[in-house]
C-alpha cells in the first residue's frame, strides 16, 4: 500500500509543486505589499491566495480523477494493473493519496490564511470592522453566523470532506463509463449524468438529515455524511473494477 501511495503521489506531484510555487509567490507579494502599504497589490494578492486555496484543492481532486482515467484508458495502466494488487488496494492507494493531499493542501492554506489574517489585523487593526461588515450583510440574509476560528475550521473541514466525496463519485462515474459502457455510444455523457444524479441524491440526503440543525452539528454531520458517502463510492468503484476492468 505504501508503494501504491508513493507512486500515485509521484504521478501528480508536478502540479502540487506548481500550486505551492504560485502560493509562495502570492504570499511574498502579500507580505511585501503589506509592508510597503501597496493597497492594490495587497488586495490582489489576498484575492489570488483565496482563489488558489479553493482552486488548488479542487484541482488536486480533478487531477486525481484525470490520472485515474488515464490509468484505465492508456497503456500506462498496464504498469499499475500488472502489479499483484487487487483493485481494492489500487483504488485505495489513489483515494488515500488524494485524501491526504486534499487535507494537506487544505490544512496548508488554512494555516496560511490564519497567519495572513493575523498579520493583516496587526498591521491595520481593522478586523472587528471587517467582521461587523460581514455580520451586517449576514443579518440582512437573516442568518446568524459566528465569525470565529471554530466556524471557519469546521467550514473548511466540511468543504474538504465534501470535495473528497465529489472526487470519489467521479471515480465511480468514470469506472461505470469505462468498464460497463465501454464501446457504447455516449458513454462519457452517461457517466457525467450518473455523476450529477448521485451528487444530487447525496446533497438531498445531507439536507434531509441536517435539516433544522444549528450550524455546529450541521457542519459536522455534513462532513461525516460526505465521508460515509465517499467510503460507499470507493467500495462500489473498487467492486466494479474488480469484476469488469480491462485495461
Amino acid at each position: 500500500m505504501k508503494n501504491l501511495i508513493k507512486y500515485e503521489f509521484r504521478k501528480t506531484w508536478n502540479t502540487k509543486m506548481i500550486i505551492l510555487g504560485i502560493a509562495a509567490f502570492a504570499e511574498v507579494a502579500f507580505l511585501v505589499s503589506l509592508y510597503l502599504n501597496l493597497e492594490e497589490i495587497n488586495g490582489l494578492s489576498i484575492f489570488a491566495l483565496t482563489m488558489l486555496a479553493f482552486g488548488g484543492v479542487m484541482f488536486i481532486g480533478i487531477q486525481s480523477v484525470l490520472t485515474m482515467h488515464q490509468d484505465m484508458n492508456t497503456r500506462q495502466g498496464y504498469m499499475l494493473y500488472m502489479t499483484p494488487n487487487s483493485c481494492f488496494k489500487i483504488l485505495g492507494g489513489k483515494v488515500l493519496e488524494n485524501g491526504l493531499s486534499i487535507f494537506a493542501a487544505g490544512a496548508f492554506f488554512f494555516a496560511l490564511g490564519a497567519l495572513d489574517v493575523t498579520l493583516l489585523v496587526a498591521h491595520l487593526g481593522q478586523l472587528q470592522e471587517l467582521i461587523n461588515v460581514v455580520n451586517s450583510f449576514a443579518k440582512q440574509l437573516s442568518m446568524e453566523l459566528p465569525l470565529n476560528a471554530e466556524f471557519f475550521g469546521l467550514l473548511a473541514l466540511n468543504f474538504l470532506c465534501t470535495w473528497l466525496n465529489v472526487v470519489n463519485t467521479a471515480y465511480l462515474a468514470d469506472v461505470v463509463a469505462t468498464c460497463l459502457l465501454s464501446g457504447k455510444k455516449h458513454n462519457g455523457w452517461i457517466g457525467l449524468l450518473l455523476f450529477l444524479v448521485i451528487s444530487g441524491a447525496m446533497s438531498a440526503l445531507q439536507q434531509a438529515i441536517t435539516k433544522g440543525m444549528a450550524w455546529q452539528p450541521m457542519l459536522i454531520w455534513d462532513a461525516v455524511i460526505a465521508l460515509a458517502c465517499a467510503a460507499v463510492m470507493y467500495a462500489a468503484t473498487a467492486f466494479l473494477m474488480d469484476r469488469h476492468l480491462s485495461v
Binding site: 509521484r10 504521478k11 497503456r75 500506462q76 495502466g77 498496464y78 504498469m79 500488472m82 499483484p84 494488487n85
Partner: peptide, 30 residues
C-alpha cells in the same frame, strides 16, 4: 500476477521515468 511476468508490445512505462526508476518500480512491486 506475482508469478507471471507480462511484457506488452506497446511501451507502457510512465513517461516521467528513467530506466533506473523503471527498475525501482519493479523492485517495489515484484
Amino acid at each position: 500476477r506475482a508469478s507471471i511476468a507480462y511484457m506488452s508490445t506497446e511501451p507502457y512505462f510512465y513517461t516521467w521515468m528513467t530506466l533506473k526508476d523503471v527498475g525501482r518500480y519493479y523492485g517495489d512491486f515484484f
